[in-house]
């Protein structure tokens, strides 16, 4: 039993040199047909991502702002120097990392609990629970961000009046006036919206844990906790890692919620929002491109960390 993260056929492609001479007409035709069918999708994917990122790398080497396009000049890596020595970059990186770690950690625990309920619950409950869980997934991120912002806002919300009994909360508490309270609400909105996705991935992982192992452990007198830690979790490690990787990368790109809920005020700017603000608001194409490239590098580093550090195998072929 193996776990894969991508649909992958059982047979691996032929190694490039050894078998070239023996490729039959039939497999040659098959390869040609394969590329004819898959080629357009492949080319489109490259055109809409590889080309723009290369353009961004190029633009990032220039001092170039749209308000003064004639003064465009080559400046080498100086844009990167400007960014990496600026406190704004490090603050936004810190905020992004904070949101990522907090939301992913909470979502993993919460999502696992949800998945367990869906697996173990009384049969009649499964359908309504699964239906309910899909609702946050179906709500647009911007709408979810507005819902949470309005709920916490001092003038149109209900949170302040409901939770006035808590220390530090009163009728006019301004949640979006401080960095940490604002980030708290942002994290809540993100967690609400994306936990269902992680729980569905974990649910699929749970389904792969062999029932026999559970029964064997039960017979041996293992407690519920022991079975969870020694049998269930080790057997679905691959599913957990894939869910973690996808959610981490997704959380690291957080943009919509920040735009809607805080607008980056009070040091709540994330890396994505910083790139947006440099490019779209300030029309600093050079600086904005450099931030974009740095964001891209961060994503690659996270991926590398997961794949090399945690041994997440994204290309494992199916055991057929």
């Amino acid at each position: 039993m193996s776990t894969t993260t991508m649909p992958e056929a059982g047979a691996t492609p032929l190694p490039p040199t050894d078998h070239r001479a023996t490729i039959s007409d039939r497999s040659r035709a098959e390869r040609k047909l394969g590329w004819m069918l898959a080629g357009p999708a492949f080319v489109v994917m490259l055109l809409v991502t590889a080309y723009p990122i290369l353009q961004a790398v190029y633009d990032s080497l220039f001092d170039y702002r749209l308000t003064d396009p004639d003064k465009r000049s080559f400046t080498g890596l100086s844009n990167y120097g400007v960014i990496l020595t600026d406190q704004i970059w490090w603050t936004s990186l810190g905020v992004t990392a904070f949101i990522t770690v907090v939301t992913v950690a909470v979502e993993l625990v919460l999502g696992f609990a949800l998945a367990l309920v869906m697996v173990k619950a009384w049969r009649a409950l499964r359908a309504p629970v699964r239906a309910a869980i899909l609702i946050p997934y179906a709500v647009i991120t911007v709408v979810s961000a507005f819902a949470w912002q309005f709920a916490f806002s001092a003038d149109s919300g209900f949170v302040n009046s409901w939770f006035a009994w808590l220390p530090g909360v009163s009728a006019d508490t301004d949640w979006f006036g401080g960095t940490w309270s604002a980030l708290f609400v942002v994290c809540l909105a993100e967690i609400w919206k994306t936990t269902p996705f992680i729980s569905l991935l974990l649910l699929a992982g749970l389904a792969q844990v062999p029932e026999v192992l559970q029964e064997a452990a039960k017979v041996d007198g293992a407690t519920w906790w022991q079975r969870m830690w020694k049998v269930t979790i080790p057997n679905m490690k691959a599913a957990i890692m894939v869910a973690l990787l996808f959610r981490t990368l997704d959380a690291f790109r957080v943009f919509d919620s920040i735009f809607v809920m805080t607008g980056g005020a009070n040091s709540t700017e994330t890396v994505s929002f910083l790139a947006y603000r440099q490019t779209i608001s300030r029309l600093e194409i050079g600086l904005g491109s450099a931030v974009s490239v740095l964001l891209f590098i961060c994503v690659i580093l996270i991926c590398g960390l997961f794949i090399k550090g945690f041994k997440v195998d994204l290309s494992q072929t199916r055991g057929e």
Binding site: L249, A275, Y276, T279, I280, G288, S289, L295, F296, C303
Partner: peptide, 15 residues
Amino acid sequence: VAIFPVISIVTPLFN
């Protein structure tokens, strides 16, 4: 492509 940060594409496309 699926893990590509959207904002990194926005900047060059905008221009």
